[in-house]
């Protein structure tokens, strides 16, 4: 396997795509948003249980490729118990990692999310990895508007 592919399909990515964490609508969820990638037909729903400023619970549902599922799954594990501001900050860093590579981000601070650091070398797949994050942001805003990557 070439190094780019190994970076893209890291074990963590394969694992989270096969066994997505928080793949459900949590009890008492009070914010939701839908996202879709019209080109691929990928669809995702992100649910949040927001208590004041804190994301008490987060889950997702939907269908998509390994990258989009792994990204959504990793996102849910990273955002649980985080505040809105922390979630927004993490969104910015992940976005930066996905679009411009690891150079601008300290991977060690991203924990397991660093497994998505190979995505930027595959421009056609950046949308797959960012779909869940954009959808989460829409849910967080309370706008709940449908997110589209096109």
């Amino acid at each position: 396997m070439n190094p780019e592919l190994r970076d893209l399909y890291q074990e963590v990515v394969i694992d989270h795509s096969r066994k997505p964490r928080n793949f459900r609508k949590p009890e008492g969820a009070n914010r939701s948003a839908e996202g879709m990638n019209p080109l691929c037909g990928d669809e995702i729903k992100v649910h949040l249980k927001l208590a004041g400023d804190v994301i008490e619970e987060i889950g997702f549902e939907g269908a998509g490729c390994a990258i989009s599922k792994a990204s959504a799954s990793l996102m849910t594990t990273a955002l649980k118990s985080k505040t809105k501001a922390e979630a927004e900050a993490l969104f910015q860093r992940v976005h930066s990692m996905l679009t411009s590579g690891q150079g601008n981000v300290r991977l060690e601070e991203l924990g397991k999310l660093a497994a998505l650091s190979g995505v930027w070398e595959f421009p056609a797949r950046v949308k797959c990895a960012s779909l869940a994050w954009h959808t989460m942001r829409s849910a967080l805003d309370g706008a709940g508007t449908r997110v589209s990557t096109e």
Partner: peptide, 13 residues
């Protein structure tokens, strides 16, 4: 159960 987009990316390589 591999999504076609993952198939496409790997084949492209």
């Amino acid at each position: 159960d591999v999504h076609p987009h993952d198939v496409g990316t790997i084949l492209d390589q």
